[in-house]
């Protein structure tokens, strides 16, 4: 098993005929994802790499049957409408790839998801990847290199940075450890699945034995994970690095969510919370692979995949 994506999940791509939509559909197919159809208003009847295109989500579902996941590649200002269309049509997981989605739009999507019992990942997510099973979004870059870089194994990766999601997996892979699933939760302030939510999914996944986290300054996701660990709801080992040690308050560091405000969301506070909850927090990113191997060995978990 893995979380969120595997070869059995039926995937729809919204914005499939755009530049990103086309390129990433090819990538997802190459990774083994079961992309069954796509949507672009006005382009119904076309196809992208053999994937049929429909004008809207309900039409696509009427023609192709139930859909588990929709991956959204539309311009930022259209993300809210696209996500709500999918959720109202009954899709239970929506992956919002675009960057620069207004935060009130993200909150509107969250409200709609809550009302329909759906969840979403992002906005501003590079995506999700389960090695050997499938991927969602743009994670991996090219299927050829992604297959080489990411091997199956016992570690679940959660990251607030897209580049660092791949980076964590690559360096840990170099140390001989494989991955169950890599999840980039997104760089924004308001996200669908947050770090603690993903950690709970990993906790329930029999194949995941440990969780590697790339956290950042800003917000409370890392502190909320620490609270779950303290409460005994996340019991698998957590190995973490928190970026932004030298960041000053009040300035945003690229990601919309990476800002210290009112003394909250500091590097120190996150490191302290996670350490107190029993996580291994490394000072230097370069130490993450070794710390992961050591933690797995200590816990008696076989590395490799």
């Amino acid at each position: 098993m893995a979380i969120l994506i595997d070869e059995t999940r039926r995937v729809l791509v919204q914005g499939i005929t755009g530049r990103e939509g086309r390129a990433r559909t090819k990538l997802m197919l190459g990774m083994g994802t079961n992309v069954v159809c796509g949507v672009t208003p006005g382009k119904g009847g076309e196809d992208v790499d053999g994937v049929p295109v429909y004008d809207n989500v309900p039409e696509a579902m009427a023609a192709c049957g139930p859909i588990d996941i929709s991956v959204v590649f539309v311009p930022a200002r259209l993300v809210k409408g696209a996500a709500i269309e999918a959720i109202e049509a009954g899709v239970k997981l929506v992956v919002l790839v675009p960057d620069r989605v207004p935060v009130w739009d993200a909150m509107a999507v969250a409200k709609c998801a809550r009302q329909h019992g759906a969840s979403f990942v992002g906005p501003n997510t590079l995506g999700i990847l389960s090695p050997g099973r499938g991927s969602l979004g743009m994670i991996g870059g090219k299927a050829e290199s992604a297959k080489k870089w990411f091997a199956k194994g016992p570690v679940g990766v959660i990251s607030r940075s897209g580049g660092m999601t791949s980076s964590c997996a690559y360096y840990i892979g170099q140390a001989g450890v494989g991955m169950s699933t890599l999840v980039h939760v997104g760089g924004d302030q308001v996200l669908g699945l947050r770090i603690p939510d993903v950690a709970l999914l990993f906790e329930d996944d029999p194949e995941t034995e440990a969780i590697v986290l790339f956290g950042e300054i800003g917000g409370t996701q890392e502190e909320d994970l620490a609270a779950l660990m303290k409460a005994g709801r996340v019991t698998k080992p957590v190995i973490a690095y928190i970026g932004g040690k030298v960041a000053k308050e009040g300035t945003r560091f690229s990601h919309a969510g990476a800002i210290i405000e009112g003394g909250k969301g500091t590097h120190d506070g996150k490191v302290r919370a996670l350490t107190e909850a029993g996580a291994v927090v490394v000072e230097s990113f370069g130490d993450l692979p070794e710390a992961t191997v050591r933690t797995l060995k200590t816990a008696g978990i076989a590395v490799g995949g």
Partner: peptide, 9 residues
């Protein structure tokens, strides 16, 4: 974003 912050550290 994350890579930059990590590198800055």
């Amino acid at each position: 974003g994350g890579g930059s912050m990590m590198s800055m550290d």
